[in-house]
Write a protein that binds this DNA or RNA. Sequence first.
DNA 1: GTGTGTGCAAACCTTTTGCAACCGG
DNA 2: CCGGTTGCAAAAGGTTTGCACACAC
Lengths: 152, 152
Amino acid sequence: MITSDYELKQYLQRIKDNQAKITTQRIEILKVLIDHKHEHLTAEDIVKQLNDSKIGQATVYRTLELFCSCGILNKVNFKKEEMTRYDLIDLNKKHFHHHLICNQCGKVIEINDDLEKLEKTIQENYGFKIINHELTISGICKECQNGDRDEN
Amino acid sequence: MITSDYELKQYLQRIKDNQAKITTQRIEILKVLIDHKHEHLTAEDIVKQLNDSKIGQATVYRTLELFCSCGILNKVNFKKEEMTRYDLIDLNKKHFHHHLICNQCGKVIEINDDLEKLEKTIQENYGFKIINHELTISGICKECQNGDRDEN
DNA sequence: GTGTGTGCAAACCTTTTGCAACCGG
DNA sequence: CCGGTTGCAAAAGGTTTGCACACAC
């Protein structure tokens, strides 16, 4: 609805770059993701958002998987939940996720501060009592960079 | 097998503190977790480890859930995987997880460095090319600390 | 002895798959 | 046109639940 055309086209280009076709369904799903970026929608959420469009759930799952492999979408798993959530990648900036999760009410707070000053200031800025944290860094390991595929 | 008695008793105490009973099954499951700490076992892995003991899988799931709520176990979700993995909490130190995940081979490297110097040195120490990261901090939010439960 | 914990099997729920029809380039 | 994409419904696969029996305290 408020989807900016420029934004949409950027993502569609990425899909084309991956030798995938631009279909009505893919555009519709992309629009939902753009309109709800940073909301961590589940596949089910997206199916519901689309229930006028008669897009099958299998298509939604397959499309989300496609978007992930195109590098425009990330899977996000918050413990306690069995369902996978998705987060659109902002193509215009380096995309790092920082989340605060409340162990009591389950609320997810998205934060954008710099990693280094983060811990020190999180208490004062958010009044959030830190109990634990989990940092996952993804990339390519040394062996894979060298092509030593069977090392694993 | 190599399970230290002291370690085991520490965990059992935590279970008692939660008004839960100490049963043979819970001890067996705990031993498996202790013998494989930092290995991120799945529920299925644990069931297999126990297949001599005739412990039902429902019991394993219920016990893991119990351990999580006792604060001795953490759920760990690596994207790409549908199964939940579990990680025993080390009661003797502040428990922070840092993982390197290779996007190509899926290998998980556990790291223990300090958060601050981490990013800068990760490339040289592990030869790992960072593509993305995701930091999840759990704790208690301001509202819950104040008892404003319905705020959420 | 009592109420919590267990085992079994069936139910559940999210995600995946097979296949015929469809449509984008 | 051709091969990728979709929709439907059925299957898969991990996790949960109901219920009768067993056991920790």
